[in-house]
Design a protein around this nucleic acid. Sequence first.
DNA 1: GCGAGCATGTAAAAGGTTACATGATTAG
DNA 2: CTAATCATGTAACCTTTTACATGCTCGC
Lengths: 183, 183
Amino acid sequence: MAQKNKLQFIILGLLNQQPLTGYDLTKAFDTEIGEFWQAQHSQIYPQLKRLEDQGYITHEITISGAKLEKKLYHITATGTALLSSWISDGTPDLTATKDEFILKLYFIQNNRDPRLPGMLQEQLALHTGKLAHLKQRLTTVFPTKASQTENYGHFLILQHALGRETYYVDWLKQTLQQISKKR
Amino acid sequence: MAQKNKLQFIILGLLNQQPLTGYDLTKAFDTEIGEFWQAQHSQIYPQLKRLEDQGYITHEITISGAKLEKKLYHITATGTALLSSWISDGTPDLTATKDEFILKLYFIQNNRDPRLPGMLQEQLALHTGKLAHLKQRLTTVFPTKASQTENYGHFLILQHALGRETYYVDWLKQTLQQISKKR
DNA sequence: GCGAGCATGTAAAAGGTTACATGATTAG
DNA sequence: CTAATCATGTAACCTTTTACATGCTCGC
């Protein structure tokens, strides 16, 4: 197995909250889940078919407008069981974060390398933007204390992502300061 | 392209520091680079062949003992040029961190879910261990202030990883405290 | 001598991205 | 009417993992 097919569990998890179409699922990877996993529709549609063949989900066809067919997928009892077992199973593997920028940094041996400031600044802009985006999402999706406990998992991962980005931005700023002293 | 073949640049970057064998390169992914990228020897050997065909690296054969042939790879002038252009190019894509645990968390809607404490504790143990490992590496690889500037990129990414793990551990502890209040 | 680690490769399978393809709906 | 978005699917390609396969060296 290349990575134990986590996509199937994500789909089951989303369908466990409410019935969705393949299109809906695809969109979820741009917003909710996008922070921690990515998948394209070309990967989702075949996976839906496989999950249905295995009996973990079913679909009903609804018609939008005159004749546009939508496949609305539902999770089955065996599907929720599979989802549960995945969540309950241990998660002992800490996957390496594949960060291309960090990789490039590794190959810059000299702290007075002229490319360093520009590279750090580019990342600072990117991560500052992402941080702002996350802050806004956290306040719009979870405006009240009560709303945070309603969908606790979602709240937690947003909060986690926010903290992570905060650290990243701080580290970039600190590193920029460090190199400015040394030139 | 599935991901723009970053492996080739990592190999070039490592060979730019010193000539290495495929075996040496493979080991580098367990230690130095392992924090930010992973690759197996089955991916490295074919990549070396491709890089050599394209003229970015060459190899010389050395003999260990009686007849064990080692291929010691060197980077060429066009190789260093390619490496430079990769580093100089912008890095505008922030790849999503694929963290299976965070994913599972997302699907736990209730903050009194009985599985939560155990899951958080398991991760706390894992990340605490990793943090300790990183701390030790930082002090053994870079014991003095002077040594830090010698291989600045390596120092930076170790420091970054350390900070990231510190945040992760703190967040886990904080979350554990949060849920203990609510039960 | 023997086992751990050195050393190099190929093959098969799975996961993931980009491109190709088509058609319907809805808001302006 | 027309462009953006909804909606579903397949094909080709690349990356990555796991498994298969072989042989040497060195310390004990």
